[in-house]
Design a protein around this nucleic acid. Structure first.
Length: 104
DNA sequence: AAACTGACTTCTC
DNA sequence: GGAGAAGCCAGTT
């Protein structure tokens, strides 16, 4: 990977996840499963969610671009909750309807 | 070091 | 189509 996250106290897997999430293009979203797949294992989506929830680096990672595989925006621990996440996604040009992604 | 937790996913009813 | 249960991984405690 080109650049390494500043915090080396985290595992390699997490760094990969951050790297991937940071590379999500504007107006696009990836599911936790997709991120997990790229990070190493498809079944690691759990770890991704957990890691994101703990989010040791939340301002630096566009976690709002990470959604569920079923098209739902998922959950959000940040300020404003899911609404904030939706607002951010909409700001990036993503159409959301009833907390669900309309267009990828 | 072991056990619990979780922002998930998929299957079944 | 909606609701519930099971199952996997890594991080945190």
């Amino acid at each position: 990977m080109a650049f390494r996250i500043k915090q080396s106290n985290i595992s390699r897997f997490t760094q990969k996840v951050y790297h991937i999430v940071s590379r999500i293009p504007k107006g696009k979203v990836l599911s936790y499963a997709e991120v997990a797949q790229r990070a190493g294992s498809f079944q690691a989506y759990r770890a991704v969610g957990n890691t994101m929830h703990r989010n040791p680096d939340w301002p630096r990672i566009p976690c709002h671009r990470v959604v569920q595989s079923n098209g739902c925006v998922g959950n959000w621990s940040g300020k404003g909750g899911v609404k904030k996440k939706i607002a951010l996604l909409r700001s990036e040009g993503i159409l959301i309807r009833n907390e669900k992604i309309v267009d990828i």
